[in-house]
């Protein structure tokens, strides 16, 4: 699959460091799948799909690539190929989405599909401060109930989002989560304990993006091809989940 170039039709700043880009393209994808987004001369990164039609991505400015992307304006070209990876399951009657920070982006796509299918959907979103809680209005607009949590307590529950929703976990028959791995582990643990089916979307340093190079190995799984979405039952005995990651050279190091 060779990258195709699409034009930016809209840029929306979600907060001081996160921007949403709409492209003049649509992608035949499932929620949780990702694209390899290419800026000629700047590199290529795996980025989740926030909305498939029109193709929309939400990206935080964290390094040279995302900084270059943030400098792009309406009319500029962005390359992409995909979708890659295994998606979330759209199922159940009461779906709980647990997002940490930028993890809200792929869950927005899932929320849209779930709400369209008539599934009652709740978003529990946690971040450092109220300003870091992104896409909340979009989730509400498509019909999600929202539960918010911040470390500082300036908006919503003060503390971890997983603690905020734990007392209500029994109300849900499926959970999907995306965010920092420590949060995903907390979600997995409470769902293992409660016996609620759950999927989590993981992240590793990726090179090829489709199962050739082996760079994104997590235990015996390749995050790009076996994931990025995993059923928590597949992760029960994974030696790397929430413990080890791999650097750009492939060296296995503690998280």
């Amino acid at each position: 699959m060779i990258p195709q170039m699409s034009r930016i039709t809209r840029v929306l700043f979600e907060n001081r460091s996160v921007a949403t880009f709409e492209l003049d393209a649509c992608v035949d994808a499932e929620p949780g799948q990702f694209l390899m987004v290419w800026l000629p001369g700047e590199g290529e990164k795996p980025i989740s799909i926030m909305d498939p039609d029109p193709l929309t991505i939400t990206v935080a400015r964290v390094g040279p690539f995302s900084t270059a992307l943030h400098q792009r304006q309406v009319g500029d070209a962005v390359g992409w190929r995909g979708p890659f990876g295994r998606p979330f399951t759209v199922d159940g009657r009461h779906l709980l989405l647990v997002a940490g920070g930028y993890g809200a982006a792929p869950l927005h796509f899932l929320a849209r599909r779930a709400c369209d299918a008539g599934i009652s959907t709740t978003l529990a979103l946690g971040a450092r401060t109220g300003d870091d809680l992104i896409l909340v209005d979009r989730f509400r607009a498509i019909g999600c109930t929202t539960v918010l949590a911040t470390d500082r307590g300036d908006v919503g529950y003060q503390g971890f989002v997983t603690d905020a929703i734990l007392p209500d976990l029994a109300q849900f028959d499926r959970v999907a989560a995306c965010g920092p791995e420590a949060m995903l582990y907390a979600v997995a643990r409470m769902c293992w304990d409660a016996g609620v089916p759950a999927e989590v979307s993981l992240e590793r340093y990726m090179k090829c993006g489709f199962g050739i190079c082996g760079q994104c190995a997590m235990g015996d799984k390749l995050v790009c091809k076996d994931g990025p979405v995993f059923d928590i039952e597949e992760l029960r005995h994974n030696r790397d989940f929430a413990r080890f990651t791999r650097t750009a050279t492939g060296r296995r190091v503690s998280l």
Binding site: C208, Q215, A248
Partner: peptide, 26 residues
């Protein structure tokens, strides 16, 4: 250890695959 080349490093062009991973290894 080597980081290898920056992405994109592997592309499927239909008839085959072209790659320049650049011998990344730990």
């Amino acid at each position: 250890p080597r980081v290898g080349h920056p992405n994109p490093v592997v592309v499927d062009y239909g008839a085959g695959v072209i790659n320049a991973v650049g011998l990344s290894n730990p």
